[in-house]
Amino acid sequence: MTSRPSVSGHVVVLGAGYAGAHAARGAREGGVQVTVVDPSGDHGFLPRLAGVAAGRSSLGDARAALEDLVDVDVARHVAERVDVARHEVILAGGGRLSYDALVVTVGAATHWPDVPGLRRHATSLRDAEDALRLRATLPRTGSLVIVGGGSTGVQLAAELGRARPHLAITLVEEADRLLPAEPASLASAAGRLLRDRDVEVLRGHRVRRVDAGGVDLDGPARRRDGTVLWVGGWQAQGDALLREATTRDGRLVVGRHLEVLGAPGVFAAGDVAAHRDLFGQPLSMSAQIALQAGRVAGANAAALVTGRRRRTARLLELGRVLDVGGGRGVGRIGPVPLGHLGTDRVVPLLHLSVDLRHLWKLGGARAVIEHAPGRDVGVTATVGATGTRLRAVG
């Protein structure tokens, strides 16, 4: 595959997630040709996956074709590595795509630690297909063991606890409290909500072994049976794409303009990048940081190509909101916790406003109308010998 850059230059974006979609929009507004390389070509709404798995939301809520949101070219390919010297992306199968500037936003993959039986017997929750496979599995199991008490695990356990009251759900977290990256008050609110939905929470337990029937744990609770879902963290793999670049735990180290250190002409944003806030402190992986950084990285890539001035990334973590269904949620605005004394009812509204703002900034009113959560689009999922087949209806 070869590219044909326009006279204004050609920016290539790797990945169609939150950072990638906003990078594409930022670069497009800079007046350059933009090509997004992504295997599916879909933009995934990761915070909506728990609702899809629980049956509250449809497949249409979980993903949208990137072309429906941003006016860019989409190349449905896997990017294997970047040849920085030649300004080319090497694609699976041997194709090459040239660029004038590149934005890497490939996100992070599920982190699978070296636990016996984990990869063979556990599943994860990273995209719409994962959510629908889990949804198809639930009627055939009486119990579910979710490993990982971060935001994904808490949201999923709470959603399923409400939607599947006869399903025995255990949430296992290795740390001594839920949401270990958040304030203790938020962890406490999450724990109360999960208890209200009859979810068993085991804190301070490490998974020692996974088999077809469940998990073996250390600590007082030695064994929990059930279908195992692993949401125990994510691992960036930026060093696999950019061998010349400086990385930290697989995340690409970037400068103030989000250009990758050791890779001229290459920018990075989202989970694959080691972002810092206004005070120089490391930022965790999150959608809000991804979309802020993506917009800056895309705009700066276009500015590099067209000879304009680049701007400094000023990334700000404003808080966190987790909509857990049933008109309830937990979260915080800055340091102020939400989840106590009726504030849990405010969280879903905040979550919706963030979701709609994301759509508006990508594609305006049309994107909001066509891709807001709760659209009347159904999905069927059938499971055969080769896996789950998905078919959107309605």
Rank of each mutant, 00 (worst) to 15 (best):
S143T: 08
R120D: 15
L252N: 04
A62M: 11
H371I: 00
R308C: 06
R48T: 08
V266H: 07
A23E: 07
P282K: 12
T247F: 09
R310I: 04
D277K: 12
R345G: 04
V74D: 03
I369W: 12
V82E: 01
A293R: 07
R96F: 03
L14T: 06
R309Q: 15
M285C: 13
R209N: 12
R276P: 01
L14A: 03
G327Q: 05
V82C: 05
R81I: 10
G232R: 08
L138G: 03
A263F: 03
V72T: 05
A79P: 02
G17I: 00
P139I: 03
L144R: 04
I146S: 00
R222F: 12
G219S: 06
L171S: 07
R243P: 08
D38M: 07
E67L: 06
G394S: 13
A381N: 01
R195D: 14
A302Q: 05
L362C: 00
L59F: 05
L132C: 01
A301L: 12
L341N: 10
P165R: 10
M285Q: 14
T152P: 02
S353A: 13
V354K: 05
L202M: 12
G9F: 03
R206W: 10
L352V: 02
L390S: 01
D100N: 12
R223N: 11
E129R: 14
